[in-house]
């Protein structure tokens, strides 16, 4: 027998095909984006640039801020805070969520707490954080953490909650050692629940950090937005919004979504071959 059952050539072709499908699938999204820009342009022309600048004005302002202003450093500061809070939420939320899912009692106990956390608006946490942490980095980082934590926690808890007993029996019948049980049987299932939670939480982190900065700090994108608001500079405000949304879309569609597709390749087959 040869070991070339799965030839590297074929894998390459499959990968290329998958990338092609992904990019082609992006055409629809691009069309939607174009439609959105057209509507924006039309509305802006009706209302005038003091109320709503046209996309071209917003992009021009953004380009100008990026080349001459402090836009990069503000974005970097916001990203640092968002990622710090997000990383804490991913670590704590995943670990505690997985643990809670492993026990029925723990998941019953934690469910109302998590509902409470999700139901509390981030702005309320922000007020508390301001009282506790003052005007430093602590306030946005904490607010991001507390907003992302329940999202990650729920995904992780569902992951262990829904582990398949039937596959567990397979693992037992074939005497899989612990490491293999975790890696081959439990982990792929858990990851398919964790990953969507992580992605949703990243979006939340990015949104919440700007809100927290707007009210609590003197630097970062949120603070810059506060400044442009006080100067009635709609073009700069729109430019910041465009920068925020673009950054989020770039991370999601260029980084997370391809990873997700790769990790969950088996799901694609599951849905496409229902015979």
């Amino acid at each position: 027998m040869t070991s070339s059952i799965v030839s590297p050539h074929r894998r390459l072709v499959e990968a290329a095909a998958a990338t092609g499908r992904y990019l082609w699938g992006g055409m629809g999204s691009l069309a939607g984006l174009a439609l959105f820009l057209a509507l924006w342009e039309a509305t802006a022309q009706q209302l005038g640039s003091l109320i709503l600048p046209t996309p071209r004005e917003a992009f021009a302002t953004l380009a100008q801020m990026l080349t001459h202003g402090s836009a990069w450093s503000d974005l970097a500061i916001s990203a640092r805070r968002a990622l710090a809070g997000y990383a804490l939420a991913v670590l704590a939320g995943s670990a505690l969520g997985l643990a809670a899912g492993a026990s029925i009692t723990a998941s019953l106990l934690s469910r109302p707490i998590v509902t409470l956390l999700i139901g509390t608006p981030p702005i309320a946490w922000l007020i508390l954080a301001l009282l506790w942490f003052g005007a430093g980095d602590g306030t946005p980082v904490f607010t991001v953490f507390i907003a992302c934590f329940p999202i990650v926690f729920i995904g992780a808890m569902q992951g262990t909650r829904t582990l398949d007993d039937r596959l567990r029996a397979v693992a037992q019948a074939f005497r899989l050692p612990l490491g293999m049980r975790l890696r081959d049987v439990y982990l792929p299932h858990v990851v398919s629940y964790l990953f969507p939670g992580w992605i949703t939480a990243l979006g939340t982190a990015w949104k919440v950090v700007v809100m927290a900065e707007l009210l609590s700090t003197s630097d970062g994108v949120g603070a810059a937005l506060a400044v442009s608001r006080s100067q009635l500079d709609t073009a700069a405000s729109m430019a910041w919004i465009v920068a925020l949304v673009s950054a989020l879309l770039a991370v999601e569609y260029l980084l997370l979504e391809p990873i997700k597709r790769r990790v969950e390749a088996w799901r694609e087959f599951a849905s496409s071959s229902e015979s």
């Binding site: 039937r166 596959l167 029996a169 397979v170 019948a173 074939f174 081959d184 049987v185 792929p188 088996w266």
Partner: peptide, 14 residues
């Protein structure tokens, strides 16, 4: 010992 179950019970991700 080896076992076959009522359903195939293959690991869907492998």
């Amino acid at each position: 010992p080896a076992m076959m179950f009522q359903e195939p019970r293959l690991l869907p991700w492998q």
